[in-house]
């Protein structure tokens, strides 16, 4: 069974927010749209976005890590938001595991958002229906798009390619390999939601220097006669042993 998902590589995400506005832009103009904005030019502007990039600080100065953390609907394999929906507007597609909302059925009761531990659903304050990431279902199957563009808008946009997209159930897919080999993990595993989206952790590259690498025959100081030599007058073993 197919389960499409995003795998987000925190090792390279620089928090640029490209995925945020490219998502907004695609979806506001597409079938999921529009995504309304309120008070766009006034105090406290607010609006519907499917994807947000947050910032966390881990540790204490000077050993601080800054973690940029993009988050959209995780398309849970066992999505708690779906069974609670009284209308069936929220549903998980059997064919590809995408969790969607049917806007024509949604009554805007918000119950599904209460049942999502991840805070990724947003009611559209104008259309009064629940919205969330569609995994760009209107791009990824669009036969009019060239094959390499049948990917979510945020994935296309992401300058660091931190957003991988694919079928996590296909063991040969890039996403499955990444999860397997680079420690992909799920958010809040304690609730058994089995998010399809995974995150790849930071990895640290270090250089180990062996002391002998600093003392080498090809030291250029030698050419200029600059490699320090001890003075001839300094004591040596030579002077005191006689056997």
């Amino acid at each position: 069974m197919t389960q499409l998902a995003l795998v987000i590589d925190l090792n390279v995400c620089v928090g640029c927010q490209a995925c945020v506005t490219s998502c907004k832009e695609w979806n506001t103009s597409g079938i999921a749209g529009y995504l309304s904005d309120d008070r766009p030019y006034d105090a406290d502007p607010t609006g519907t976005f499917f994807n947000r990039v947050q910032t966390f600080e881990v540790g204490e100065y000077p050993n601080t890590q800054t973690v940029h953390f993009p988050k959209s609907c995780l398309h849970c394999e066992d999505p708690p938001c779906v069974p609670v929906c009284p209308t069936g507007a929220s549903y998980k597609r059997a064919e590809d595991g995408i969790v969607l909302v049917d806007y024509d059925k949604c009554i805007g009761c918000k119950y599904c958002s209460w049942a999502c531990p991840y805070g990724v659903r947003e009611i559209d304050e104008h259309q009064k229906v629940m919205k969330k990431c569609t995994l760009c279902v209107d791009r990824i199957y669009d036969q009019k798009l060239p094959r390499e563009e049948r990917r979510p808008a945020c994935v296309m946009a992401c300058p660091t390619n931190a957003r991988l997209f694919g079928d996590i159930h296909d063991p040969d897919s890039a996403v499955a390999v990444a999860i397997r080999e680079r420690g992909g993990y799920q958010l809040m595993p304690e609730w058994g939601t089995h998010p399809a989206n995974h995150y790849l952790p930071r990895r640290r590259t270090e250089i180990v220097i062996q002391p002998d690498e600093l003392v080498r025959a090809d030291n250029p100081l030698k050419v200029d006669g600059k490699l320090p030599k001890p003075s001839l007058k300094e004591p040596a073993l030579d002077d005191v042993t006689s056997w």
């Binding site: 927010q17 945020v20 607010t46 976005f49 947000r52 990039v53 947050q54 910032t55 966390f56 600080e57 881990v58 540790g59 204490e60 890590q65 973690v67 953390f69 993990y185 799920q186 958010l187 809040m188 595993p189 304690e190 995150y199 952790p201």
Partner: peptide
């Protein structure tokens, strides 16, 4: 558990909006 980083001190500085 929310962001999957195992360190005793994690603090949010920005929620993105």
């Amino acid at each position: 558990t929310a962001i999957g980083v195992k360190h005793p001190r994690v603090v949010q500085t920005a929620q993105g909006f």
